[in-house]
Amino acid sequence: MRYLLISIFILVLIPSCSLSITKGLLENVPKREYIINNYFSDEEKDYIYKAKFQLLKHHFGGILIIKKIKTNHHRMVFTTEFGNKLFDLEFIEDDFKVNYVLDDMNKKFILNMLEHDFQTLIAQNNKVEKQFSNELEDIFQSNRDNYQNYYVFSKQTNELTKIVSASKNKEKLIISFLVTERGISTSIKLSHEKFKAIMDLNYIGKMD
């Protein structure tokens, strides 16, 4: 009985501690109420990226276009290189609107994934629940829907370098902001742990 209880205790405890993003880190009292992702925050700018998507051995490409319409309102369109639209989405507050999606992609699990991935990528104001630190980084936890999103800021540059989106016990999506120039993240990598899917985004829009 004692072993059974210990086993149950361990089973319950381990998952809640097993996220590598916060493993071994001490929790601090949050220094701020909100953390801000400013990479898609300028209403004057058209954020245009060449996208390369890899799923297992398959490769797809396209153009990802992100535009902030107003506060808490973004529009996002994905086209082929030729300009044919594959999807046209809108994120308004916490609502998600599908303006257009190619018939072949009009499936619930695909739309759910697009909503979660891209909402995580662009959400500008995120309420801080917890804060962790290591020598080089401050990590802020913010919860959205059923996910815990961890925003990693470099202590040296104060820049957002990574967002890790996790369910209770597993990291699902990692967004790495690899290069930043003049406030624009010019190289971004989105990796899906479960599907072994990777999307590379390289900025091709105007810099000024």
């Binding site: 058209d46 245009i48 153009i63 276009i65 535009k67 319409i69 300009g83």
Partner: peptide, 15 residues
């Protein structure tokens, strides 16, 4: 020259 016009963008995307 290819111009992609999307109503909500400030500029057409040129390639």
């Amino acid at each position: 020259e290819q111009y992609k016009h999307l109503d909500f963008l400030s500029n057409d995307i040129k390639s």
